[in-house]
Simulated assay, not measured.
Amino acid sequence: MMDNFWVALGAVVPLFTLLFMGLIIKRLRLMTETELEHTNRMVFKLFFFCMMFYNIYVTDLAHTVRPKLMLFGGLGVLAVCFLATALVCWGDKDNRHRGAMIQAIFRSNFVLFGIPIVGNIFGDSALAIPTMMIAVIVPIYNVLAVFILETFRGGRFALGKILLGILKNPMIMGAIMAVILRLVEFPVPKPVLKGIGQVAAATTPVALIILGASFKGGSFHNHLPQLISCVAARLVIVPAVTLSLAIYLGFRDIELVTLLAVFASPCAVASFAMAQQMGSDADLAGNCVVYTTALSCLTIFGWVFLLKTLGLF
C-alpha cells in the first residue's frame, strides 16, 4: 500500500511544485504581465513544436502508434462533449453559461498535465505514446470548442477556417514534420536534434511555471452552482465513467495512464481565452481553470493511487 502511495505522490508532486514556483514568481513580481504573455506565446509557438517534433522523430512509430487507444480517446472526448451538452442544456438556460460549462467539462489540460503524469510514472522513454495522442486529441478539442461556443452565441461555424487553424497549430505542425522526415528517412544532424531535444525537455517545466505565474482569482458568487458542477464533472465524474469503460475494454499500464491523463486532467487554460473571445462567460471559464487545477492535485493523486492499488499498471 505504501509503495502505491509513493507512486501516486511521485506522479503529482513534480507538477504542483512547478506550479508553486510560478506562484512565487507572481508573488515576488519577477515578471510583468506583458513578459508572462510573451513567454507563454514563445512556449506555445516554439517549445511545443520542438516537444512534438522530438518525441515523435526519435521513436519507433510502428510501436508507438496505438490505433485502439487513439480511437478510444477520440470517441471518448466526443461522447463526453455530447453528454455534457445534453445535461448542461437541460440544467441551465443561460447560453453564456452553457458554452463555458460544456467546454470546461470536455476539454482537459492534457498537453500540460498528461505528458508529465506519464513521464513521472513510466519515465521519459514512455512519452511518445501520450505525445501521439496529442495529435488526435488537440484537433478534436479545438473543433468542438469552436463549434460549442459559436452555437451558444448564435454565430456561424466555419469548419474550413477551423481546420486551417488546426494545421497551423505548432504542435500539429511539429508532429506532421516529424512524421514526414521519418517517412522519407531524412536524418536530422545530431547536434541540431540534441538542441531540439533540450528545448523539448524544458517545455513542460517552463509551461507549468508560467501557468502558475498566470493564475488569477475571480469572483465566483454569481455562478457558484455552475462552477461546482463543472469541477465535479471534470475531476470526478468524467474520469470515473471513462476509466471504468477503458478498464472493461482491457486498457492497462501506460495506455490506461495516458487515458487517465486525458480524462482526469483539469480544464484547459485555453478554454478561458476562447470563452473570452467568443462571447461566453469568461469569469466562469476562468474559475473553472483555477479551481480544477488547484483541486486536481488531490484528484489526480487519488486516481493514480486507485489504479495502482488495483494493479492496473
Rank of each mutant, 00 (worst) to 15 (best):
E33Q: 14
L307Q: 05
A200S: 15
C50L: 07
T203M: 09
M51V: 11
I102R: 01
S219Q: 13
V7Y: 01
S108D: 04
G212C: 09
R252W: 07
F122I: 05
A126F: 08
A246H: 08
T34A: 13
I247E: 08
D92N: 10
L87S: 07
G212W: 00
L75G: 06
M177V: 12
V136R: 03
W6E: 04
Y57V: 07
A285Q: 14
I102S: 03
A128L: 04
K68L: 10
L75P: 03
A100W: 04
A145K: 05
R66M: 08
I300N: 00
S280T: 10
T299Y: 11
L61F: 09
L61R: 08
S265H: 08
P139G: 04
K216V: 11
K168W: 07
L183C: 06
F20C: 00
V111N: 01
L259M: 13
F16D: 00
L15A: 01
A128E: 02
G302D: 06
V269K: 01
L144H: 01
M171S: 10
T85R: 06
L163E: 03
F44G: 09
I176P: 01
L306F: 13
D281H: 15
G286D: 11
D253Q: 14
A79S: 13
Q226S: 15
A261N: 10
L256I: 13
M2S: 10
L61G: 09
L36K: 15
F113C: 05
A79D: 04
G22T: 00
G279S: 11
V304M: 03
P139H: 04
G114Q: 07
I140T: 05
T64G: 12
F186I: 11
M42G: 08
G197N: 12
A201W: 01
Y248I: 13
Y54Q: 05
A240T: 15
L28Q: 12
M132W: 03
F82K: 06
L298A: 15
V136T: 11
L181H: 05
R66I: 04
L235D: 02
P189R: 12
I129Q: 09
V118C: 12
L295I: 14
E33G: 13
F301R: 09
K45N: 14
D124R: 08
R252P: 02
L245W: 12
L298D: 08
V290I: 15
V13W: 07
R27N: 08
S271E: 02
V238G: 02
V289W: 00
N222F: 04
K190T: 14
T131P: 02
H221E: 14
G217A: 15
L78C: 14
A268G: 13
Y57Q: 05
L295Q: 09
P139L: 04
L149N: 02
V58R: 09
M31A: 14
S265P: 05
E37S: 14
